[in-house]
């Protein structure tokens, strides 16, 4: 892969091993300038290791990574002033206020012209300026973390699981801030295990599982290219239906509302499913059949059962 000025990030055959275990296994991809790129994968897939190699915190075992045209293993101190990082589980000095925190990080970047008030407004923390970090809620802490990642007006911003651990409302507030950055044309590199987050924010999504990229493209492309099946959902079913569906050789799963979801490879499977359940005399309130969404595509690509993702996504982790 040759260096291209169009790309902010170029990753070529990147591998990172820990005691023989490949956390990142020979992955390659590029991120265009001004693009929002999401690395989507379950916990332990290698997302954080990948992002930490790109933003110079870790060293790769092999492969090459260039960021803004510079080798990340050679030019750390030239790269750092041009990037912003929100690490996973961002934390800062407990007894320092919101404004002081931003002033501190601004000084670290030797950037006296940072528009501290502008950043505070960007993340909507105007009424928390004098509040110490320890007294902020989880969502406010993450928003401050995003503002900290922007103190040096970076060209590329890395956000490692920016909404993990937040309640749904706080998560949406963070998304609002990130959408604002997207509008400003910043290159954003996002890691997440929330499908909704990737679908809402990202131009390109790379699905990563067990250290490898299993699919990559825009959310629409991923669905289009990988949705070669249908999702059927049986509503308000009696207890026998689950066994009946399984005996058909299908892989049913309960979702969080107690409905049965099942992947169907052929359209005639719909008629077969309906007839089999009807013939058994079991009762059900309705059957929905539709194309899969990104979440269901993700679960298929990462070899996870259909319902598993739902339980995790709906919960406030």
């Amino acid at each position: 892969m040759t260096q291209n000025p169009e790309y902010a990030i170029e990753v070529t055959n990147l591998t990172r091993r820990y005691k023989g275990f490949a956390a990142v296994d020979d992955i390659s991809f590029t991120v265009r300038k001004g693009e929002v790129f999401a690395l989507l994968g379950p916990n332990g897939a290698g997302k954080t290791t990948t992002v930490e190699i790109i933003n110079t915190i870790r060293k790769p075992t092999s492969g090459k990574v260039t960021l803004l045209g510079m080798d990340v293993t050679q030019k750390k101190y030239k790269i750092i002033p041009r990037i912003g990082v929100l690490p996973q589980g961002f934390s800062t000095f407990d007894r320092i206020t919101v404004k002081e925190t931003l002033q501190y990080y601004s000084r670290l970047f030797c950037n006296p012209n940072t528009d501290i008030n502008g950043l505070i407004a960007l993340v909507n923390l105007q009424d928390k300026v004098k509040v110490q970090y320890r007294n902020l809620s989880g969502g406010l802490k993450q928003r401050l973390g995003i503002a900290v990642a922007l103190v040096n007006d970076p060209e590329v911003v890395f956000l490692d699981e920016p909404t993990t651990g937040l309640d749904p409302r706080a998560r949406r507030e963070v998304w609002k801030v990130l959408l604002g950055l997207k509008k400003k044309g910043k290159t954003l590199f996002l890691t997440t295990h929330y499908m909704e987050e990737a679908e809402l924010l990202a131009d390109t999504v790379a699905i990563v599982a067990k250290g490898k990229i299993t699919a990559m493209g825009s959310p629409g492309e991923l669905i289009e290219n990988n949705a070669n099946y249908l999702v059927a959902m049986l509503k308000s079913v009696d207890e026998n239906v689950f066994e009946i569906v399984r005996n058909m050789g299908l892989a049913p799963a309960y979702d969080s509302q107690g409905h049965i979801k099942v992947r169907l490879t052929h359209t005639e499977d719909v008629r077969r499913l309906l007839n089999t359940v009807k013939d058994s005399g079991a009762s059900f309130a309705g059957l929905d059949v539709r194309k899969p969404n990104l979440e269901e595509v993700f679960l298929k690509l990462t070899d996870e059962p259909l319902a598993q993702g739902f339980v995790r996504i709906k919960g406030a982790e």
Partner: peptide, 13 residues
Amino acid sequence: QKGVIRKLFTTPI
């Protein structure tokens, strides 16, 4: 332990 030093590592310090 809190990860503050990890964040500092991404600054010019």
